[in-house]
Amino acid sequence: MPPANPGSAHVDRLNALWKLSVQGGLSDPERIRAMLDMAATVLDMDLVVLGEFGEHYAARYVSNRLGVFPEGTTLPAETALCHIVHQSHTPYHIGICPRTPSTRGMPW
């Protein structure tokens, strides 16, 4: 069910993000993971991945409800769907991922 006031909900989640960003007692990796967990919750995502491209694609930080894509997972760079974003350096949003060769390497 959509929230009663979407604008207020957005402000609330930004406030929560800010509080987490300044919360004491967290190491840098802990804070990054906590933020990914928070984003997964507020955006209702099954998987949030902060990944790095080098020789391969590596999932460095993962928030994962499904247990299908653990931290440290590596993929050939060109098979990761994020490759498109990395190459174009442009955000990419799709509602229904096509099952094409370019998306076959992702965890589904």
Partner: peptide, 28 residues
């Protein structure tokens, strides 16, 4: 996974990182 968002993440001058959001359900 059917729904995907990917955001490039700049770390200093480097652009090697991507933040990805995936959802199992197909949604707008």
């Amino acid at each position: 996974m059917r729904t995907y968002s990917g955001i490039p993440v700049s770390v200093g001058d480097e652009a090697r990182w991507v933040l990805a959001f995936l959802r199992r359900r197909s949604e707008p």
